[in-house]
Design a binder for these strands. Structure first.
Lengths: 338, 338
DNA sequence: GCGCGCGAGGCAAGCGCTTTCCTGGGAGCG
DNA sequence: CGCTCCCAGGAAAGCGCTTGCCTCGCGCGC
């Protein structure tokens, strides 16, 4: 691997001069020397060692992103927003998948700090786990104390800049819509109980039901993996326990797709027999059959805002932005059959 | 930001000793000193500067990945495979999205080289652009010459380790299946013409047709964006130019989903009026309606193999692995209507 | 009791780069 | 013709860490 010293030697100049030419320093360098350096760079295929540069000139430019899983469409969209802003501002992104493992999340914060990233964006639901939350907050605080910037998406457990999707409001929208359609027997297909996002969405849903004097008993909520297969499994459970359901609320679209698949396999027609609602409005929501009624979250915008918060100097106090949820009515919901 | 020197000072030892404790060096350190160091680390929330470490101990451990777009399900799956192996071997991944921009691809190779990554994995179709290919090969060669490892997925334009999905064979499978079903009027909804993947898949398809003495005229192929909307647009074009089509082949599943949506909006029944075939077998392929007949590519495995090639020492000569394609018949294909 | 061996810990060099500060030579002025 | 000023270019000091090598002190053997 060619070094700056090699370039300098080959060009017959000092490393200082070579460095100045390569970085376009403000200090003037004679035309001839500049040419010689440039030629040497080309000949040797020289690429500066980024680590050495970072050591010598502590100018953090990389941003770390911790998400649950980039291949999950939810995070794929959020990441797209993060990327857009980062690229626009000339920042490189290091993307880390925690796969919903709190321990891994902690490790990644450490790792990103070691990488001297300029900012860390933490995307995805928090956990109902006080010990973990404390630990994480401590690590983030330590990082912020040394000049790092932190922004979180969808977690209220961190004190600092945050952008929050309106999870509870979204749940409420679903509840009101189902009530309006005459549904009284409602089941919920939920992701892992430990995620605060799940709790928030459920809370909103329950609030809407309570508005009409109804409630959602615990046995009408099934927790499973936040995935298509989890959705199918939970729906099967739900059906078995409460055969009279007229509506199934899935707490994300992947689970809703699983629910749809399971219902179809049982010959239950949607929405004639059972209505199905999703959450998130992932890109494919409109393409399944029947097209999924769901709550749209501005996923890309979530990323855009979070990265902006992370990159714009904190003007002192913590900033929290809430992005609205919106009901998107498609073909998977209809009037209650009973 | 606390440094090793701070830790050493606080623990009352030399930086050398502190370093040895922190890295678990083989050199023995007295129990008491070790404790003092560890306590200082905790007190100061010390995290070693990864860049300084990399400089001092040139032990590359990060791997760079360049994909077209992680949020595209194809790459999401491939990346999952890459991740799995990388994590297993204790490697951090830097994921870069080129968004199918050759220039950006070149820049990223440079950037990853500057980051001193241990290996670069380049995933995604190559381009029909000789100048670019030469340039890229040159850069990769320069990188390999300095001890870097390179593995590519789905590009035959790079000489070195590669894992190739059987694109042409997949195209052939589609062609044969459609012929078997009696289709003679076939249209193709293709992604960007400049991608070698497109050419390969088309070549396979044409080969199958040629086997029966048929051909695929150029006007039966529409090139568009490799996305859902691109698929819808291209399908509309195709229909307008050749109303008598009995089958539409989309060269990836996203485009197929777009095709399905457009056909539905026109009241054309699939597969009764027109059959639709996709390519890749993305996770949602089974969940659209009708469930998509497509060619399954072992996407995760593609990633797994590529990362393995990248991390296992090159035993001399370039290794090329081809992973098979497989036809998955679902509900979007049927006998030709005519 | 003296010398040697051994092992724990520290010194310092060096990884590749940037940047401050200094040097030396040329130009301009008196 | 000599002095000063200015400026291009270089020397060198780090950035934070690792590690080979040396030192020093102890314990043991003769």
């Amino acid at each position: 691997m060619a070094t700056l010293a090699d370039v300098a030697r080959r060009a017959g100049v000092s490393p200082a001069t070579a460095s100045r030419v390569i970085n376009g320093s403000s200090k003037p360098v004679a035309e001839e020397l500049r040419d010689r350096v440039l030629r040497a760079v080309a000949d040797l295929r020289y690429v500066p060692n980024a680590h050495a540069q970072l050591l010598a000139r502590p100018q953090r430019s990389v941003v770390g992103v911790i998400v649950h899983d980039v291949s999950d469409p939810y995070f794929a969209e959020v990441t797209r927003g993060l990327q857009r802003v980062a690229t626009q501002r000339g920042r490189l992104l290091i993307i880390c998948n925690s796969y919903r493992d709190p321990v891994r999340e902690l490790e990644y914060v450490e790792l990103l700090r070691a990488q001297q990233v300029a900012a860390i964006v933490l995307a995805g639901s928090g956990y109902h786990d006080a010990a973990f939350t404390t630990l994480l907050n401590e690590k983030l605080a330590a990082y912020e104390a040394t000049g790092g910037r932190v922004a979180v998406i969808g977690r209220h457990d961190h004190f600092g800049d945050a952008v929050m999707p309106a999870n509870a409001a979204g749940g409420e929208l679903i509840g009101r819509e189902l009530l309006r359609l005459g549904h009284r027997e409602i089941g919920v297909v939920a992701g892992p109980r430990v995620l605060t996002t799940i709790t928030d969405r459920l809370t909103g849903l329950r609030r809407a039901l309570a508005g009409e004097g109804r409630e959602l008993p615990e046995e009408r909520v099934r927790y499973a993996d936040f995935s298509r297969d989890g959705g199918a499994r939970a729906t099967a459970d739900l059906l078995e326990a409460s055969p009279g359901l007229t509506a199934v609320v899935a707490l994300n679209d992947s689970m809703a797709v699983g629910a749809l698949a399971l219902l179809r396999s049982r010959g239950i027609l949607v929405p004639r027999d059972v209505s199905v609602v999703g959450f998130d409005d992932m890109p494919i929501a409109a393409d399944v059959t029947p097209a999924l009624t769901t709550v749209r979250l501005p996923l890309v915008e979530l990323g855009v805002r979070a990265m902006s918060l992370a990159l714009d100097p904190a003007d002192g106090r913590p900033r929290v932005e809430t992005l609205p949820a919106e009901l998107v009515s498609r073909d998977s919901t209809g009037r209650a059959s009973a």
